Simulated scan of single mutants.
Amino acid sequence: MTANDDIREIVRQRYAESARQLTTVAAGAPCCGSGGSGGSCCGPSTLEGNVTAEGTVVFGSGLYSQEEAEGATAAVEASLGCGVPTAVADLHEGETVLDLGSGAGGDVLISARRVGPSGRAIGLDMTTEMLELARKNAADAGVANVEFLHGYLEEIPLPDASVDVVISNCVINLAADKDVVLAEAARVTRPGGRFAVSDVLADVDMDEATRADLAAYTGCIAGALTEQEYRAALAGAGWTDVEVRPTHRVHEHAQSAIIRAVRA
């Protein structure tokens, strides 16, 4: 296996375990032995849960308002993300939306409601356990205009220029080769289409010990790009009008941000 394959497998194993824990919670058992909700006790391993000592929510369902989660509550409660990309994706009736690393399906279900019956929301995930959970959440919510695909961000199983909007919630930073991921996202997006993701950005002074810690990949920290690196990667992949808006700190060396761009 290559180093990139090793990273992918580490991430897959971590999120497969998260899906198993979330399924256990849905069945009525406590998660991780804490008795808490899946979103909080199964969150990123590099933080003390999803809330800082000061009470600031940094990951998970607490970032969503009740209105934003309407119709997708169970799936949103399982969120391990660092933001709310659907809040800034400006989705319209009839559009096709692709969620990279769709997890339990919360953002896909929210997107499906916003694009309406004439639109389509697609979730892509490499973790079989997460896909099973997402499909169950969609069925329980009675949402029909959704599809969940098994695959990798570096090899999106969709035709060229087949989606209007790409979203993602704290997943692209987990990919070992982000240049390939952003190029693939551009390939499947129609000209003029949009990129609207929540992701983690590394501070320029992130220390090498943090970056070298492979375990931190599953907590969305070690794999993060700096803002300058992210902007350059998007431009190199064919995205224009790049906008980066930091939202909150998630680590002493990293912050969450909304990142938007337009397909050239």
Results as ranks from 00 to 15, higher is better:
R120N: 09
A161G: 09
D199R: 09
P157Q: 08
G119C: 01
F148L: 05
E227S: 09
K178Q: 15
A144W: 00
I221T: 14
M206K: 02
V146F: 03
V200E: 06
L131N: 13
V146C: 11
L124R: 06
G151C: 05
T128H: 15
T210Y: 03
L214G: 00
A209K: 13
E208S: 11
P157L: 05
V146I: 04
N169G: 02
A186F: 01
N137C: 02
A209M: 06
Y217W: 15
P157W: 04
C170W: 05
E132P: 00
D203C: 06
M126A: 14
V166R: 07
L225C: 14
G116C: 08
T210V: 15
R187T: 00
V197R: 10
I167W: 07
A232W: 08
G123R: 11
A222L: 04
T189N: 13
F195S: 10
A139L: 05
G192K: 06
D179M: 00
A222P: 08
R231G: 04
D160P: 07
R231T: 15
P117K: 05
A222C: 08
P191V: 04
R120H: 10
V171N: 07
A186H: 15
L149M: 01
K178Y: 01
V163A: 03
L174I: 07
D177L: 06
E147M: 07
Y152G: 00
A196N: 06
E154F: 08
V163H: 08
A186N: 06
R187A: 02
A161F: 11
A176C: 05
G151A: 09
A175F: 14
M126R: 13
I122R: 07
V163K: 10
L234K: 11
N145F: 00
A139K: 11
G219H: 06
A232V: 05
Y230C: 09
N173H: 05
M130H: 15
T189R: 13
A138V: 04
A222S: 15
I172M: 11
L234Q: 07
T226G: 15
A212M: 01
M126L: 15
G219V: 02
A175K: 07
D199A: 04
F195H: 06
